[in-house]
Simulated scan of single mutants.
Amino acid sequence: MLGLSVGTRCDRDRATIDIAGLWQDSRHREIAWVAVGDVWFLNDKPPLFQTGAHDGFHEAIGDTIVLGMTPKYLESIGLVNAQDQSKEALINAQMRMALAKVSFMPFGLMIDRWRWGVFDGSIKPDHYNQAWWELKAKYQGVGPIAPRGEEFFDAGAKYHVPGNTPYTRYFLSHILQFQFYKALCDAAGHKGPLYECSYYGNKDAGQKYWAMLGKGAGQPWQKTMKEFTGGEKMDGSAVLEYFSPLQEWLKQQNEGQSCGWQAGGPAATPAPAPAKG
């Protein structure tokens, strides 16, 4: 995707690419991770610093590459024929992307909201399941299809909970990947809508990404962020810019509608006792 030389491992990986969309995403994401390993190895980075500037950086690395898989990019590598993208096709593509990226954010946030509540004692053991569904109602607007009392432990269905793996990294990565993508597009001199940008083969973008990756965790993340994007803060402006066509379409579709939800009241209640025969 970038103007990088990442060795024969990348070439072998590329040779096995499946043309199905989901496999394409995964393959490009893993190719990016091969490149990251090469960056850290070639820079002789101590093992302690062979990771992202923080966990969110680490998780955003591969998905930044996937965002560059535009129709023009796929055409340039011979996977699709030349085609004019209609407005309807653009909205469909953005909706598909938003359902994967934007709708994940509240879920990614609520996982650690629950974990932190357990750790600080504000969520008591006898309310684990109730708190889980209250947070899902608050952040996602969803609830169980049947009563879920404290005899259930629904949070445990998510591996990261029993595995004690922090989850905020994934929430942050879904913001950072768009910031990183915009930074690479700017480096490549892209003109036009952000969602059309492909920096494939652009050496300026590749060198900029290589330099950021090479820092690893060897300096404060704010410094790495400023060197790469020009600012020290994480923000969602690039997300809004990327999805601006979809946002405008949704405003038109939802005009006059009441959007959102009320998250009041307990989301999980004890299951009713079985009737006695």
Score class of each variant (00 low, 15 high):
104 F>M: 06
170 Y>N: 06
215 K>R: 13
212 M>W: 12
93 A>M: 12
269 T>K: 09
151 E>P: 00
183 A>Y: 03
55 D>T: 14
40 W>A: 00
212 M>G: 01
103 S>T: 15
113 R>V: 14
19 I>K: 09
139 Y>I: 05
26 S>E: 10
24 Q>T: 13
260 G>F: 11
192 G>C: 04
169 R>W: 01
235 D>F: 06
63 D>I: 09
210 W>H: 02
191 K>A: 10
174 H>L: 02
75 E>S: 08
125 P>Y: 04
192 G>Q: 04
40 W>G: 00
9 R>T: 12
154 D>H: 10
128 Y>H: 11
118 V>R: 15
100 A>T: 13
21 G>Y: 11
117 G>L: 12
265 G>D: 02
141 G>A: 10
105 M>D: 04
40 W>P: 00
233 K>V: 12
53 A>I: 05
185 C>K: 04
205 A>K: 04
190 H>I: 07
188 A>I: 08
71 P>Q: 07
53 A>R: 04
129 N>G: 09
163 G>I: 00
204 D>K: 15
49 F>I: 00
259 C>A: 13
62 G>A: 11
99 L>E: 11
216 G>T: 00
266 P>A: 11
63 D>K: 14
82 A>I: 05
237 S>I: 01
17 I>R: 13
255 E>T: 09
167 Y>K: 06
224 T>L: 03
175 I>S: 03
261 W>I: 07
96 R>V: 11
171 F>R: 03
137 A>Q: 12
177 Q>F: 08
86 S>F: 07
114 W>R: 02
54 H>D: 15
226 K>S: 08
245 P>G: 08
217 A>G: 12
182 K>S: 04
227 E>G: 14
70 T>C: 07
118 V>W: 05
25 D>S: 13
25 D>N: 12
83 Q>E: 14
11 D>W: 10
92 N>S: 12
108 G>V: 08
31 I>N: 01
161 V>R: 01
139 Y>W: 15
39 V>G: 00
189 G>K: 08
54 H>T: 08
213 L>I: 14
196 E>M: 03
206 G>I: 04
81 N>C: 03
51 T>L: 00
168 T>Y: 08
267 A>Y: 01
207 Q>Y: 01
85 Q>C: 02
254 N>Q: 14
53 A>E: 08
33 W>A: 00
227 E>K: 03
9 R>E: 13
190 H>L: 06
77 I>C: 02
248 E>Q: 14
229 T>A: 10
85 Q>W: 06
178 F>N: 02
44 D>T: 01
169 R>E: 05
136 K>Q: 13
